[in-house]
Design a protein around this nucleic acid. Sequence first.
DNA 1: TTCGTTCATCGTCGATTGACGATGAATAGG
DNA 2: CCTATTCATCGTCAATCGACGATGAACGAA
Lengths: 113, 113
Amino acid sequence: MAAATARSAPARPAPTGDDIAALAKALAHPARIHIVRLLLEKRSCIGCDIVDEVGLAQSTVSEHLRILKAAGIITGEIERPRICYSLNPASLRPLAALLDAVFEAGEPAPSVC
Amino acid sequence: MAAATARSAPARPAPTGDDIAALAKALAHPARIHIVRLLLEKRSCIGCDIVDEVGLAQSTVSEHLRILKAAGIITGEIERPRICYSLNPASLRPLAALLDAVFEAGEPAPSVC
DNA sequence: TTCGTTCATCGTCGATTGACGATGAATAGG
DNA sequence: CCTATTCATCGTCAATCGACGATGAACGAA
């Protein structure tokens, strides 16, 4: 059981509810969704352009980037004096796995209640 | 563009960053992930069993259920005097779509930086 | 009617979040 | 050297969250 969404991961450490919640929490803000979409669209690293794009103070954006980085959703590669941010898709697997499970379980069964 | 994850939805209202963030926020708590998994496992409605399962006060669990319901992630069908909670997979599509986009964009491209 | 069960709501309290400006470190260029 | 750019960190403040107990509504059963 629980073999769904196994694609290229060698070992599945059975993501904790806390892990998934932490991941969701990192995405639980419009500004951070904005950043993720930006990195998605611009393909990869941007520097301070993110600050212009989201329209918040530099320190605030830096904080959002820190949160995303702490969750492993993005990575920051130093490229003096800038920092090149990129998405780290693998980190989102646990959350995606839960969503997939919901779709798989929820669609075929009309009502068991 | 942005035609990915179009499956059975007749019109895609282009989910706002706020929408997705709100969805993520509703999932951004271990207790709520626990509830979702419970509904996933038990297939559908439970009543006050959720309270026993998550080990928090009844009022606290009720609050978590309210949040999930407000986000559209679960639905509560009245079945006196109980309430039958079920997952509503469709509500999670916008979030899943973003994750899918990240996976699609992130996997084939090794580095454009 | 009178209980007992199930659930929602209210008020409260401490902890966390989100935003900002100010400051400081590291580097490229003049 | 000095200056400009980019980014992280700190301190502060208002706002929100999460948990709880207490209370009340709605029903089934005795």
